[in-house]
């Protein structure tokens, strides 16, 4: 038990539990290049070699190629000619790019609403003495294990405007439900809801492990100080969970930005709402494989890379502010 080995922290200052001076940072000895260390680094390279080679062959090299392709114009079955910045000019003037960027951001925002929900469900499931906790955990995690396409097809049936179960339920209370997945605007919300629902399981498991690592004494101390359940949640659980939350938010954002399969299966290629719902990746797909414009698609792919990179960089900056706990 951790109880015997950790020293309870002062209960008064719950918001900054680790505010004390950092235990002596070790002073590094001056670096010297000895034969032994270079041999060791050689071994190091040998061990990570396969992974680095894979990274290079399957990630970095295609990235370089994509960057090159974005300056070319492609024939339908390969064969490319230099096109200069034509693809990027098109990128800046194409209204579909802005629309799909906006759609992607809205979708990501909706899916991120799932993080607070996952925190609440995780802490409810982690309450000591909860019966059938394992069963609940499995139930919540199930959507994450299921194939996105299968998930989307079932939701598509449920969302069917004329014969779906969602509208049948609404009809019971006298509301005439809309056509969820084929009305422009609404389809994006429906997509977000499914994405949110599917992400809760994974987030909940990660957050559960974060919760488990919070020392029990803090809760006891807070209770002794007379804090109620809600106060404890916001003053102990949430701040100590910040690093975990940061991880979950970053991962959720990156995956949400890359939404494709869910969208493709939930709406279908011929859906009238598709132009107002399509994500950046969907736009990339349709330019590359439907309209046969692979050079332009490469430019879109790079735009996606830049956007995700920028969003992640901003998140890391923010992290220094609100998740700086060790």
């Amino acid at each position: 038990m951790t109880r015997l080995t950790t020293v309870p922290r002062p209960a008064g200052d719950l918001r900054q539990p680790a505010a004390g001076p950092r235990a002596g940072t070790p002073v590094r000895p001056p670096r010297r290049r000895s034969r032994r260390s270079s041999q060791r680094s050689l071994w190091g390279w040998a061990f990570i070699g396969p992974a680095v080679a894979g990274l290079f062959v399957f990630y970095l090299w295609p990235l370089v190629q994509t960057a090159y392709f974005s300056f070319t114009k492609w024939g339908v079955f390969g064969g490319s000619t230099w096109a200069g910045i034509a693809n990027y000019q098109k990128l800046l003037s194409d209204p579909a790019v802005l629309t799909s960027l906006r759609n992607t951001i809205v979708y990501t925002a909706i899916v991120l609403l799932g993080v607070p929900i996952a925190v609440v469900t995780a802490s409810l499931i982690n309450r000591p003495g909860l019966r059938l906790a394992k069963l609940y955990r499995v139930l919540f995690f199930m959507p994450y294990v299921a194939m996105p396409v299968a998930v989307a097809l079932v939701w598509r049936l449920m969302f069917n405007g004329d014969f779906g179960i969602v509208n049948a339920a609404l009809a019971v209370v006298g509301v005439e439900g809309p056509h969820w997945t084929s009305t422009p605007g609404l389809a994006l919300v429906a997509l977000g809801v499914v994405g949110l629902w599917a992400s809760i399981g994974f987030n909940m498991i990660i957050i559960s492990s974060g919760l488990a690592s919070i020392p029990q004494e803090l809760y006891e101390a807070a209770q002794l100080d007379g804090a109620g359940g809600i106060r404890i949640f916001f003053s102990v659980t949430v701040p100590l969970l910040a690093p975990t939350l940061f991880f979950v938010v970053v991962i959720t954002t990156i995956t949400a930005f890359q939404v494709f399969d869910l969208l493709f299966a939930l709406l279908g290629a011929m859906n009238p709402a598709m132009p107002q719902t399509q994500s950046l990746i969907y736009l990339f797909y349709s330019e590359a494989f439907v309209s046969n414009d692979k050079g332009y698609a490469a430019a879109i792919a790079l735009l996606i890379l830049v956007v995700i990179g920028a969003v992640t960089a901003i998140q890391f900056r923010l992290q220094r502010r609100w998740a700086n706990i060790d």
Binding site: F159, N160, D162, H179, T181, S182, M270
Partner: peptide, 10 residues
């Protein structure tokens, strides 16, 4: 005829 949305859902 059913609407564009109806023809897409079903």
């Amino acid at each position: 005829s059913p609407s564009v949305q109806q023809l897409s859902d079903t």
